[in-house]
């Protein structure tokens, strides 16, 4: 049941929503991690809703808080499309890279994956295991090597083999560590000597709280994030921070991850999502 379904039913029916109901709605909104500011703003909008067109009005309000950017994948019209996947530690970058690669491959395009996480122990092996599983070429360098040089080599090899897509996995890093963010910028800069980076996807863990906003902000400042992969939506967390990010930073959620298998991955459908909140 959607967050607002009880509200709509009550407003439409007896046209009454008791103080206790308002309190319950507030606590559910807060519990979804959209944060106190957006919660307050949504509650104010809801208070203005009339019974006749409650559903339509709320739909409009909710839509107005979403990003206005396109959710479509950005492709390079003339040549290789380069996608970089970035994010803080443990948000599911490597798994998302594998899922995305598998999806691209299944759609009939050729894809090469760069194992750019040279820091975390066995991250390269983790991606290679995925590569074997989904039958995708994984380019890797030495452990603890320079991630920019791994990405550069991968870009070169992908371009030579005329791959249509290159997906670059990167090491998890906390957005407040400026040396690590510099390193990430360098990876992007170096790859762009071979081919422009068309899309930078930020993984946000659905369990993340208000810190997700700082993550999105700083990663955007550093490598210009073009979309969000909201991961681990199969748990009990609702991932509301991603909506707060859409609202505040205008970065669209493009993909959602819902499990550990490569097929647990789909494009984010905003219309369907809002429908889900209302009904």
């Amino acid at each position: 049941m959607g967050l607002f379904s009880k509200f709509i039913a009550k407003i439409k029916g007896e046209n009454s929503f008791t103080p206790a109901d308002w309190q319950e709605l507030e606590s559910e909104l807060l519990a979804s991690d959209i944060g106190p500011t957006l919660t307050r703003s949504l509650l104010e909008s809801a208070r203005r809703v009339k019974s006749e067109n409650a559903q339509e009005a709320l739909k409009q309000t909710l839509t107005s808080h979403l990003s206005t950017q396109s959710r479509a994948s950005i492709a390079n019209p003339d040549g290789m499309t380069v996608v970089m996947v970035v994010g803080v530690n443990g948000t599911g970058k490597t798994t998302s890279v594998a899922k995305l690669a598998s999806r691209i491959k299944n759609s009939g395009s050729s894809v090469v994956v760069a194992a750019g996480d040279t820091f975390r122990a066995a991250a390269v092996e983790q991606l290679q295991t995925w590569g074997t599983r989904i039958n995708v070429t994984v380019v890797s360098g030495k452990p603890n090597g320079d991630p920019a040089s791994v990405a550069f080599d991968a870009a070169k090899r992908a371009a030579q083999s005329q791959a249509q897509f290159l997906i670059i996995d990167t090491a998890g890093r906390l957005h407040n560590k400026s040396d690590l963010m510099d390193e990430l910028e360098k990876v992007k800069r170096v790859v762009e000597k071979i081919s422009p980076v068309n899309e930078v996807l930020l993984t946000i863990d659905a369990t993340t709280g208000q810190n997700g906003m700082a993550q999105a902000k700083l990663f955007s400042e550093s490598v210009n994030v073009t979309g969000i992969i909201l991961t681990k939506l199969d748990g009990s967390a609702r991932g509301g921070i991603a909506l707060a990010i859409e609202n505040e930073l205008n970065i669209p959620i493009k993909w959602i991850g819902t499990g550990e298998s490569e097929s647990d991955f789909s494009a984010f459908d905003a219309g369907e999502y809002i429908e889900g909140l209302l009904t």
Binding site: D205, A206, T207, T208, G209, N211, S236, A237
Partner: peptide
């Protein structure tokens, strides 16, 4: 994870009921 949001309530409760724990470690 220190970055966890409101789901900390449901998740910690679920682990407490499901497997039980004696202490907490905050990471990151």
């Amino acid at each position: 994870d220190a970055m966890i949001g409101q789901d900390a309530v449901r998740t910690s409760q679920a682990f407490l009921n499901g497997v039980g724990f004696d202490g907490v470690v905050l990471t990151k």
